[in-house]
Structures are given as C-alpha cells and as structure tokens.
C-alpha cells in the first residue's frame, strides 16, 4: 500500500506538485543571479562575461543535469497540474448557480491553473527566443578575450529588447509573464510548504511573509531586466 500511495493518491500528487514547485523556486533564484549580468553597462567585457556564463551553463555536466531536472520538473509540474485539475473538475460535475469564492479565498489561489498556463506559454516563447536560437539557430560564435569559443547570446538578448519594432512588445510580454509568476508564487510558495506538511503556528507567519516577499522580489527583479535594457541601457 505504502508504495502505491506515494504515486497514486491525491496527497502524493500534491507532494510532487509542491516538491517540483519549490525546486523551481530555487531555479528562479539561480537564473535571476545569472541574468542580473545583463544589467552591466554595455562593453566587450560584459558581453564576454555573459556569453562565457551561458556557455558554462550549457556545457558543464553538473549544471546540465540540474537543467534536465529543471525541465522535468516543469513538465511534471504542468502535467501533474492538469491531472489534478481534471480530477477537481470531476469532483463537482454540477456547478453552483451562484458561487462566491471571492468571499473566502484569494484570486491567485483559485487560478493557479490559468496562471500556470500563462507561465508555460511564456516558458515556450522564452526558450524559443534564446535557448533554441543558441542551440539550433544561426548565432555566430566568436572568441572572447580569454580565448573561449562562445555564441553571442548577449547581443541577441540585448537586441531583442532594444529592437525598434518589437522590443517594446517583448518587454510587455515579459512583464506580464512576470506578473503571472508573481501571482503564481504568491500562493504557490506557502502552499507548497502546506502540502508537504510544513505548518506550525510559530513559523507559518514567516513562511507566508517570506513567500510574499519572494513572490514580489524575484519576478520584479526579472522584470526590471528587459525594462532596463529597453529604456536604460545604451543601445547596441
């Protein structure tokens, strides 16, 4: 019983949801730290630094394992979410004529699926724009000052957001997506702990507040990057 319980039961599905979700939170932190390099003033050094970092992230075996875990987590989180949603729908086949969940719940907590879908679409766009371009696209390789052969992801990124025609649109798409992530995290972070059974009157408040801070600060920092590139950074 115990073994199947950890795979099939409703609680197990939530454990996986929470576990993958919280793992993705740590991924967000790492990803953000790397991306903050894009805020450096435009220079050869900045370009080299970012492109070498990108090379490292795509070739280092340890990082590669981590990134596969991340992909799997995203996929699992999304599929598990769909499975849960289907079951949830089935649990109330006849809807209420009058249902007022706004009186007792926060909007984000009720719309994790929609928010998640927005985020998933964003991830596809985001990966198409940069990851796929770098992996399969026609990005030119060049030698950095330290002699490494890298693809110029830096220029692609900066130009994408500075593009005269589409740059602003991309900035808006990214900002909206970050807002979606913020709402998703505002519920998901603390909820993950609750699903894993971490709930104690002494620490609940801390987890909640930390969750809100996380949900605001991380997406905000992410959102600043395209905004700054578009409006603040020297044009290249």
């Amino acid at each position: 019983m115990a073994k199947s319980a950890l795979l099939k039961s409703s609680l197990a599905k939530k454990y996986w949801m929470a576990f993958t979700g919280l793992f993705l939170c740590t991924f967000l932190v790492g990803h953000l730290l790397g991306n903050l390099q894009l805020l450096l003033p435009v220079s050869e050094a900045a370009r080299d630094q970012f492109n070498e970092y990108a090379l490292f992230m795509t070739t280092n075996p340890a990082v590669m394992i981590l990134s596969y875990v991340t992909y799997i987590s995203i996929l699992f989180h999304a599929i598990d979410g769909i499975v849960l949603t289907v079951r949830n729908r089935k649990a109330r086949p006849q809807k209420y004529v009058n249902f007022k969940p706004s009186t007792n719940t926060r909007w984000a907590s009720r719309n994790m699926g929609i928010l998640g879908t927005v985020i998933l679409v964003f991830i596809v766009i985001h990966m198409q724009m940069f990851w796929a371009e770098m992996k399969f696209g026609s990005l030119e390789a060049y030698s950095t000052a330290s002699g490494a052969q890298v693809k110029d992801l830096y220029t692609l990124t900066i130009q994408s957001f500075q593009d005269a025609e589409y740059g602003l649109i991309w900035v808006i798409v990214y900002v909206i997506s970050m807002i979606a992530i913020a709402f998703h995290l505002s519920h998901g972070f603390a909820s993950g702990f609750q699903s894993l059974g971490v709930n104690h009157p002494k620490y609940n408040n801390f987890i909640k507040k930390f969750g809100y801070a996380f949900a605001i600060l991380i997406p905000l920092a992410f959102a600043i990057i395209p905004i700054y590139i578009h409006f603040g950074l020297e044009k290249i």
Partner: peptide
C-alpha cells in the same frame, strides 16, 4: 493511509490550499 484512500475513492477533489 486507509482514510485518504477512501477519501480518494469517494471522488472528492484535491486540496489547492485556498483556505
């Protein structure tokens, strides 16, 4: 284990921690 198993069998939905 037994109670959750039965709860699932009855067709209740999952917890989204909406509160």
């Amino acid at each position: 284990l037994a109670m959750v198993d039965q709860m699932d069998k009855e067709g209740f939905g999952n917890c989204t921690n909406t509160g």
